[in-house]
Design a protein around this nucleic acid. Structure first.
Lengths: 379, 379
DNA sequence: CCTTTAAACTCGTCACGCGAGCATATTGTA
DNA sequence: TACAATATGCTCGCGTGACGAGTTTAAAGG
């Protein structure tokens, strides 16, 4: 509710900055046209952004056409950076991203069942090594339920109730990996430019996020997107989350094992990969298990289409493989799960484009959103 | 993506206008303080808004304190209006709302099983009678699935595939009654000032909406919020929507009749009212049916809390009565349906505050949102 | 009747975007 | 090689809207 002149005055520069971030490699002339700015205004804004060490310009690749060449907008060499912490079930990585979203290369560290108390000090140290005037915010992606800055529970990591606020004193955004992958798909992946997109990542269980106009809908404390704990499954089956009938239990390696008459696997993710590989190699039982799981996934996708009316659905993680080996079963179940009137105009259900980079890219975007505000310009 | 001076220049006035709309009866001094405006700026803005015939000022009730009295912001007598069409299963009403959200009184017309082809010309006529320079937009609330401006299906009305765009040539917003009631609760009712609120209305089936920062999350074409068609129920039970296992079938008069061993009622809404009345009068079978339905409602509420993480849940329609006659069963089922870590900090589940006015108020707000843009100021 | 208080009004200043006109860099053609 | 065509950047005067300081106004209190 702040409408003072200070805030309003920065709007033009902020819009240019966000445009350069969202569309890396855009030229100044193109950006000005998109924002409806005159060339004079664009000159003024770029002058201020360069003076503020936020953006710079580089010679554009020749277009071959006539006319004075324009310049591409690039992040300023002294411009703001965000740090990205990407924690998976087996690894952790700390890297940085600049305006434009490009992630710097960084070493991948093994994690292997270590407790949070062993890993977080190392992460904190890696973040401290990046500290400096350019670093403005930190984004963390983690495979578990997140509430504010707290990791409620990460089953794969066997971490519980971990406060991630201790990692840094900078502005911090913590997010569930599946949700952040959805943010990434909407901004840089398969759902770019779509007004309302639903993303689902299947790993062990299923999570995701609804994206509206590029912003994630994650609820009061960022704990939304736990679609795997909607009771789309058998109500008599208890879920480790404490509820019953969770969709989670129907769509991953645990479900595949049940369909194959096997014991619950210790590593459901690895079991699912093996089953999918077997299905690809022609094993009929594995293929049937994949179809059954794909159908359970598709059924839930249909239900969520009813509830949130997305223009596109992106599937990540095992969802990519399930689309590949059991696409027809998945799509058929989706069609059966939606209200009848939708069946002749279903939103496309497509594989995610960013693969395992999704969570890190989403964390970078979320952290950068904290930076690209008028406060960042004044500072 | 438009950041031209024209657009930016109106921002201060627009903020003041929206503030006056959102908070009827607010004083100029209070509004200026909220927006962070100096008294000089407020004077300038109010001068322009008065000249544009958008807002006026009226003497404020005396505060008893010292100092020069301020004025309350009121809608200009020649200011913009929106028309509201409220269609229920049994009635239709056409009225108007001004800035501030107050609905004018209007006659209620019976509907009684008439087809859309009989009713819509009357509605169109009633809207035409309101036409004039003050009328800027129309909002329609209707009990059925809405996709863009088309009513896909309204089971109660027995209307299908009706294009409501024919009602007017003005800007038009069509919405599902349950979703619009949620909009109303968030802006004027039990969820005011809450960042993320979930509203559910139970009538025949259950619908609703998620509200984030005062804006409804309704998907790509406004067809979201059909939470009743999430498969939280018995998968073997077919739903008229074409899918199976819909939650709709577990939470209304149809479900109560099943629990009582009765045939499916012709009017599930009336049957539910009778059953609830009987439960209030001490009928143990009716009370048990109410508890069973309340539990099915509560279970789904818990599931949706997992998925969208609302700060508050408002229940409208029969939900108000179920909270009254079977609140403990409902709350217990909610607690059982959420992930265990949530159980000691569940969001409040409260009755809606606006009753049967909800859809109309929501339609007025949605239509007014079309008007309170910079385009409306320049015109 | 004067003081205190809170808010409205007045006016000079400043920042930003606009638009017009000019300058510049590239391609295409004579 | 020179010049036209084209697209873009740069400069400058103008208008708008918010700010802030100072002044005025309308109430309550003594």
């Amino acid at each position: 509710m702040d409408h003072r002149a200070e805030t309003l005055r920065a709007q033009g520069a902020l819009a240019m900055l966000r445009c350069a971030h969202r569309t890396p490699g855009i030229t100044r002339a193109e950006a000005a046209a998109r924002l409806g700015l005159s060339s004079g205004s664009a000159a003024g804004i770029m002058g201020r952004l360069r003076a503020a060490r936020l953006l710079a310009e580089a010679p554009a690749p020749q277009t071959g056409g006539r006319g004075r060449p324009t310049a591409v907008l690039v992040p300023h060499p002294d411009g703001p950076l965000v740090a990205v912490v990407d924690i998976t079930h087996a690894t952790w990585t700390v890297t940085t991203a600049a305006i434009g979203g490009a992630l710097a290369a960084a070493p991948v560290h093994r994690l292997l069942g270590q407790p949070a108390s062993a890993v977080l000090p190392l992460v904190r140290e890696a973040l401290a090594a990046l500290h400096g005037p350019r670093l403005r915010a930190v984004g963390v992606a983690i495979p578990g339920t997140v509430h504010g800055r707290t990791l409620i529970e990460a089953t794969n990591l066997r971490w519980r109730g971990v406060d991630l606020g201790v990692l840094t004193s900078l502005p911090l955004a913590v997010g569930n990996d599946a949700s952040l992958a959805g943010v990434a798909e909407a901004l840089r992946g398969a759902a770019q430019g779509v007004g309302v997109a639903l993303h689902l990542t299947v790993e062990v269980g299923v999570g995701g996020v609804l994206i509206v106009d590029g912003r994630p809908v994650l609820g009061a404390a960022g704990a939304g997107g736990e679609f795997g704990h909607l009771p789309f499954g058998d109500p008599s089956r208890r879920c480790p989350c404490g509820a019953g009938g969770c969709w989670d239990l129907e769509v991953d390696g645990r479900a595949m094992a049940r369909h194959l008459g096997r014991r619950a696997p210790a590593d459901p993710r690895a079991f699912a990969e093996r089953t999918i590989a077997a299905a690809r190699d022609g094993d009929p039982a594995a293929a049937a298990a994949c179809r059954a799981v794909a159908a359970a996934l598709g059924r839930g996708v249909g239900a969520l289409i009813n509830a949130v009316d997305p223009a596109v659905v992106t599937l990540g993680g095992l969802g990519v493989d399930l689309l590949d080996v059991a696409g027809p079963a998945l799509h058929a179940a989706t069609a059966e799960g939606v209200m009848a009137w939708r069946r002749d105009a279903l939103p496309p259900v497509v594989p995610a484009a960013l693969g395992s980079q999704g969570p890190a890219i989403g964390a970078a975007e979320t952290a950068m959103a904290l930076v690209l505000t008028e406060a960042a310009l004044t500072a």
